[in-house]
Nucleic acid binder design. Structure first.
Lengths: 134, 134
DNA sequence: GCTTGACCTTCCAATCATGGGAAGGTCTAT
DNA sequence: ATAGACCTTCCCATGATTGGAAGGTCAAGC
């Protein structure tokens, strides 16, 4: 199967399939005589795995580790658990950071008259002694 | 005042100060005879404004707009409000996306034995028919 | 007067995942 | 034979930030 069909079946664009190969996430795949890449159902399966992992926000580096554990049927689940828990912690930290931003901003937005007057607490808050920045 | 002192007083690194100037966020500042940039207290004030806005996650493009409204004392507060509300909406969407990721991942992590056995719901979930991907 | 160290300058590169596009080769159907 | 739908590789851009190289400037201490 050529790259286009593998892309359609896996939901990963041809561009990204080649990229994943170039960074060593996917092993170089077989080639036809005309140098076209040749994908098997197993490859497509692997691409779906990658897509799902990306959907959950795993980095390409994390996915490389997950893939090698996936291929190794004798892995120990705590190795997978560790990677996933680490990423989850990163996600939670990121969410907390964004939440803090959003809360501070929401308060400023709430205070703003939102009319034709020039007076604006949003600008005051941004220029001020960062009382609202915490 | 030279760039280092402006950096210390504003909390913006010299690198970033030059970057903000290069992308047109800050207007080119006066220069000494030796080509060193020369910052005023007003410039430092502006840099702090930028830093606070970055802390709230505003893009450089948004900050450019906010800065020009900040400088224009006859602005109408609804213009500021619109930019801030737009960014807030983006933040909330981003948080919701990350939250969905984290929730799905948390469920997988919760199900994993986290021991020496090879059986692992995290890997199964990632390779599977994406039931847990929603 | 000369060295040392702390500054400053500009320019280039890398990060991360993704997309756009050019230039060129290949296959299939008309 | 030609059109168009593929494929290939290579380069570039994104956004904010950091790192580093190569070189200029200034002050203090010897």
């Amino acid at each position: 199967m050529k790259i286009g069909q593998a892309a359609r079946q896996s939901g990963v664009s041809p561009k990204m399939i080649r990229y994943y190969e170039s960074v060593g996430l996917m092993r170089p795949v077989a080639r036809h005589d005309n140098a076209y890449r040749d994908y098997s159902d197993r490859d497509v399966h692997e691409l779906r795995f990658i897509r799902h992992a990306r959907t959950l926000g795993f980095s390409v580096a994390d996915i490389a580790a997950l893939l090698s554990l996936w291929r190794d049927t004798s892995r120990e689940s705590h190795e997978v658990h560790q990677i996933a828990a680490g990423h989850l912690a990163r996600l939670d930290r990121q969410i907390a950071d964004l939440q803090a931003m959003a809360d501070a901003l929401r308060e400023l937005v709430r205070c703003c008259h939102n009319d034709a007057r020039p007076d604006c607490p949003i600008l005051t808050g941004l220029s001020g002694p960062s009382a609202l920045m915490r």
